[in-house]
Structures are given as structure tokens and as C-alpha cells.
Design a protein around this nucleic acid. Sequence first.
DNA 1: ATAATTCAATTAAACGTTTGTTTAATTCAA
DNA 2: TTGAATTAAACAAACGTTTAATTGAATTAT
Lengths: 214, 214
Amino acid sequence: MSDKREHILTSAEKLFAEKGFDGTSVRDIAQQAGVNLAMISYYFGSKEKLLEALIEFRAMYAYGILEELNKNESLSPWDKIDRLVEFYVDRILNNLPFHNIMYQESATNYRSEEIKQKVIKIKMRNLDQITKIIADGQQRRLFRQVDIPMTVGTIMGTISSYTQSRTYSCLILALQEDTSDETYRSRLAVRLKSHLKHLLRAHLDIRNEVEPQS
Amino acid sequence: MSDKREHILTSAEKLFAEKGFDGTSVRDIAQQAGVNLAMISYYFGSKEKLLEALIEFRAMYAYGILEELNKNESLSPWDKIDRLVEFYVDRILNNLPFHNIMYQESATNYRSEEIKQKVIKIKMRNLDQITKIIADGQQRRLFRQVDIPMTVGTIMGTISSYTQSRTYSCLILALQEDTSDETYRSRLAVRLKSHLKHLLRAHLDIRNEVEPQS
DNA sequence: ATAATTCAATTAAACGTTTGTTTAATTCAA
DNA sequence: TTGAATTAAACAAACGTTTAATTGAATTAT
């Protein structure tokens, strides 16, 4: 992929994440990337095809790491859970703009079939990988028979609820809104990882056989 | 509030939830509501003020129920947690369009100060109410010293991760996409409530003193 | 080695729609 | 008769996309 094409993609990524797809004009993107307006159509064909290309471009990031985690037989299911949390929190915090685009796009039905399918494919890939780890722990009688898809929703939803709105996160983390990206991300990472590890440990541990009252 | 004004608000709500604020035109809204285009400016002044009015209109829904829950001294903290889950799941599933708008709007910074403040105020209200319940349980030595804001993120995030995309939810629930709204919501409600009750029971119970390995 | 050719890259300008908003005339019940 | 409600029409600006001309570096021919 040419440098210029990639530069347009990352420029668009930044704007889509901040202002949304419909809130971003092709002229915004051209200006942000420092290229002529017509280059977007020239390279991608249309604004929607540009979004499609962006998803294609980013969807490949970090492929394989989770597969490796699953195949590593020297790790206990508990180790895998901890590494899973580390991996997801880091990956999302290091790709905040793209994650915010996925966050927004998965909530709308008004995109091309290609885009909708790509978005859902990414979600299903996450679901599958985490499912394998939890199911393995259940088979070894270490984990309770929790609702796996709901547990995946808990992991992703917890992270998303703190990555979608920087204003809100900064309030919770007691940070000023103009804190540097690096400080913000590392504080949030520590907090999210610690919480999710405690949460999943209590939630999954087969020794915690608790029943809701109702 | 006049009938017509309210009718425009609910028409806009439906469209904003489906297509997003920027993806919805004032002409879309006028057509959906069956009123003349100029009536939107006449009643609300602008498209953004209409969104502001919508948030104002909906923000009041179910005010007071949580306060009541907090004041009810005959309920144990565990009872309150279960009722909290019931309340939130039902409230969100019965107000899906508005919840989806909040979901989208909390992810963007490109709205008027008034709108951004209203959105964050709603989030803080939720945080405060749940905080009181959990802190009460902690004081009574029933709950562990969990990270309360993160736990609130887990509750809201888990629900949101299954309300944002009907396509994804239907895949998980093994439902066809054209299932009736009623069936869809009741199935999802059962699943979410059960999961969240189990999750919070294990997470909060002071007897589950587990430490992450790392 | 130089000139001619070629074609992808780039540009400014324009295309026809659609956008949010306003205007000025009209309706209609009080 | 008054004034709020409603309308069709128009507004300028912004939208996504296309066009047609131009650049410029690599390739080919002389």
C-alpha cells in the first residue's frame, strides 16, 4: 500500500473517530491529510469505500496473538485470562481511534453490506477467541458454567464504557482533560486491567458457587 | 408540552437512534413526523436544539425510582443489587432508541456545550445512584472493596454491548433478525439479568477473597 | 545522450444534490 | 380582528463526486 494511501486512511481514521462517519466530510479528510479533494475518490472510489478500506487495513492488527495464547499449553486457564485482559486493554488503548469507529459503526444499520459484515466479523472473531479460553477452563473444572457470550460482552463493554468518552474517564480517573494521551492511557490501563482481573477471577472461579436470590 | 411538539421529538428519536444525529436530516424528521419542514425550526429553533430538547424530555424518565431503592431500609444490599439489575435492564430495554442516542452522543465531542453537559449529567446520575448502593454494602462488610466506578462501567457496558447492535445480539440469542421487538427484548432481558446477577454476586461477595496472580 | 512518448498522479473547477434555516404568504380558530 | 400555526418556496452553504486539464517522472525511440 502506498504511503499516501495509508496517510489518507489514518487521517480519515482520526476524523471518523472524533466526529463520526456522517459528521466528517470528504473535504475534512482531504485537508487533514494535506491532499487534493479528488484524491479520495481517485484512491478509494467513494467515502464509504474509504471506510471499508480503513476497516480492512486495521482489522489485521494483532492477528495471531490470541491464537498463540490459545495454543500455548504451558499456560493455565487462569494465566490465559490474565494475559487476555492485558492483551485486550493494551490493544484497544493503543488503537483508540479505530476502536471508537468500530464502537460507533456497530450501532448503525445504514452502511453498505460489506462494511456491516466486516464489523460483525471482527466482533465474532473476538467472541470466538475468548470463548475458547473460557470453555477450556470450564472443561478442566476450574471455571464455573458462566454464560460465555455475556461474559465476553462484560469484558468488551467494560473497556468500551471507559474508552468512548474521554471527558467521563478523566472525571473518574481524577485527571484533567488536557492530560497527555500517554498519561491518560497508562492510568486507564492500570485501572481497567486490575478491575477486570479481579472481576473475572471472582466470576469464573468454580469455588465461588453463589446463586442470585431471586 | 403540545402533542405535536412531542410527536416531533419521538419521531426524531427514532431516526437519531437508527441513523445517528449527523446521518438524519431535518427533512427526514419532518417526513417521519408528518409535519412541514419549517415546523422543526418553528418549535425548536434548530436541529441541535431539537436534540437538546429530546434529551431534556427523556432525561426525566424514571427519576426517583433509584432514590427510593436507596432509601428503602428494609432491603438488604444484596436485594438492592438484584433490584438494581432488574431496574436498569428493563429501563434500557424499554427505552432502546433513547439509550442508543446516549450511546452515540457520549462518544462525540462535536456538539453544543449544553448537550455535552446534559449527556454527562445523566451518566453521573447513574454513577452516583449505584455508588450509594455498593458503598452501603461495603460499609456493612457484605461487599468487597471493589473499584466502584469500574463496576458501574461493567454494569452499563455489559448492557450496552448487547443493545447497540441488534444483528449481533440476535446471533448470540439464536434469534432471527426479523423477530418481533417484544420477543427480542424479553429474551435479551432474561439473559442479561441472569448474567449480571451472577456476575455481581461473585464480584461483590466479601467471602470471595481472590487475588489475581500477576 | 537526448528527445519523444506514455501514463499514473495531481490539480482547480464545476457538477447536481442535499443540507439547515429563513422568508413571506396563507390558514384558521379564538 | 388578531395572532399563533402552517405552508410552499427560496436561500446560501456544504455535500459527495466527476471532469478535464496539467504535471512530472519513468520508459521508449532516435
